[in-house]
Computed example of a mutant assay.
Amino acid sequence: MTAKIYRPAKTAMQSGKAKTHLWVLEHEMEKPKVIDPLFGYTGSADMKQQVKLTFETQELAEAYAKRHGIAYRVIQPKEATRKAVSYTDNFRYTRTQPWTH
């Protein structure tokens, strides 16, 4: 049984950074998912797949995994690069490309 520890990125529906400062410990799949032949639902007998634990820091998540004997791997977050964009640059006289709608 292995787990991954990561800090989630913001979703496409978020403009802010809510819930991106917490670290998540999530168990990886032990058994493959099975498709029900009658209804076509996808299911699994792996109950640990449904559990996501959140921690304030990476060290707390690692300590929990060590204390409970869970093998884990840490996925380091990639920091977003912010590009300074000015709205007025769209209408600049010295613009190299013509502005289009």
Score class of each variant (00 low, 15 high):
T2S: 06
K4I: 13
I5N: 01
Y6P: 02
Y6V: 05
R7W: 05
K10Y: 05
K10W: 08
T11K: 15
T11A: 15
A12L: 08
M13P: 01
G16M: 00
K17A: 05
K17M: 13
K19N: 15
K19V: 10
L22S: 00
L22A: 06
L22G: 00
E26Y: 06
E26N: 07
H27K: 05
M29W: 02
K31D: 07
K33Q: 08
V34Y: 13
I35D: 09
I35V: 12
P37A: 06
L38V: 10
Y41I: 05
Y41D: 14
T42D: 11
S44Y: 03
A45Y: 11
A45P: 10
Q50W: 13
V51C: 06
V51P: 01
K52Q: 12
L53Y: 07
T54A: 12
E56H: 07
T57D: 04
E59M: 05
E59G: 03
E59L: 08
A61T: 05
A61L: 03
A63N: 08
A63E: 10
Y64Q: 01
Y64M: 05
R67F: 08
R67W: 05
Y72Q: 06
Y72L: 05
Y72T: 03
I75K: 08
Q76K: 14
Q76C: 06
E79L: 14
A80G: 10
T81C: 04
T81F: 11
T81H: 06
K83L: 15
K83D: 12
V85H: 11
D89H: 02
D89K: 01
D89Y: 01
N90E: 13
N90R: 14
F91A: 12
Y93P: 15
R95Q: 09
R95S: 09
P98D: 08
T100C: 00
H101K: 14
